[in-house]
């Protein structure tokens, strides 16, 4: 009897240590970013344009570019994604078409980001002649995050009990009235969580925007959707691998990493908090 428990204790300790090590790795990684990059971050860094071949100055155009690209992607993905989810959950009948749509969504989610990037390059940049632009980048990112929004919205809608719909219909409400007043409001937190996670994903993607929207060095802000732009993710890549003097700008690279990481992890945390709070407050 004792040997069993001893074995168990040893195994469980090993598991605990393994888990702790992985988490430690994460924190260590973040710590190297903070210790190497925090010194660089100040108001100028965040609001100034890059100067002197990007050995000085700030990353403001990159921050703005990331915001434009991400907002553009979400502006398409949110309405299309939520509308698709509503159709799939509330209207669609079982059958071949439904199965096809569902597997299309799963497939789309599994496409590597670089393949999205190449597709975006071929279709938007070259074929539709949109050039290297925010529009090309946003459309490409939109295709990438669409399945995320759809899946999260579907789950949120499915978690609303059937009895809400039945009760509303029995009172003589139409299907759309039922969805709008008695289903969607309760699915909103889940939809919001999914959207925020999609935004975080779009903000962090590099390969697709390198091929469709990003420039290495653009000291001016983009003037329209057809303009190309700097972006945080691509900026980090360039500064770390393509800059003529990588070692010199290393601290600036760390600074950019911190900014991007800060934005993305904050978004993820907000989404997690919304989800947790909603789960606790749910009184049905």
């Amino acid at each position: 009897m004792n040997i069993k428990l001893l074995k168990q204790r040893i195994y469980f300790q090993i598991f605990r240590i393994t888990t702790a090590s992985v988490i430690l790795f994460l924190f260590l990684m973040i710590w190297t970013f903070i210790s190497n990059g925090i010194g660089v971050i100040d108001w100028t860094f965040l609001t100034d344009i890059p100067r002197r071949g990007m050995t000085e100055g700030g990353i403001f155009p990159a921050i703005v570019g990331t915001i434009y690209l991400t907002l553009g992607a979400v502006a398409f993905a949110l309405p299309v994604g939520v509308a698709s989810a509503i159709y799939l959950v509330e209207y669609a009948h079982e059958g071949r078409l439904l199965r096809m749509i569902n597997s299309a969504i799963i497939n789309l989610a599994g496409v590597p980001s670089i393949v999205h990037g190449l597709f975006g390059f071929g279709l938007f940049v070259i074929f539709l002649n949109l050039g290297t632009s925010i529009l090309s980048g946003s459309l490409t990112l939109f295709l990438m995050i669409l399945p995320i929004v759809i899946s999260a919205s579907r789950e949120a809608l499915l978690s609303v009990p059937k009895s809400f719909r039945e009760g509303s219909l029995a009172l003589g409400a139409s299907k759309w009235q039922t969805i709008r007043h008695n289903v969607l409001p309760y699915a909103l937190p889940g939809i919001l969580t999914g959207t925020i996670l999609a935004v975080a994903r779009a903000a962090g993607e590099t390969a697709p925007i390198i091929l469709t929207a990003a420039f290495f060095f653009r000291p001016t802000l983009p003037k329209s959707m057809l303009d190309g732009t700097m972006a945080l993710a691509s900026h980090i890549y360039y500064m770390a691998t393509q800059h003529p003097n990588i070692a010199l700008v290393r601290p600036l690279t760390y600074g950019s990493v911190l900014v991007l990481l800060g934005i993305v992890l904050s978004l993820n945390l907000v989404a997690i908090v919304i989800r947790t709070r909603h789960r606790r407050r749910k009184n049905w």
């Binding site: 009895s163 809400f164 039945e166 009760g167 509303s168 029995a170 009172l171 003589g172 409400a173 139409s174 009235q177 007043h181 008695n182 309760y186 009184n283 049905w284």
Partner: peptide
């Protein structure tokens, strides 16, 4: 109209539950 086996009030206020039907109409 229909009353179900398991009471199914909406997770809204008492007022909004009763007002739901009229509002929808």
């Amino acid at each position: 109209g229909m009353i179900f086996q398991k009471p199914n009030p909406f997770p809204k206020s008492v007022y909004d539950n009763v007002a739901y039907g009229p509002r929808v109409h």
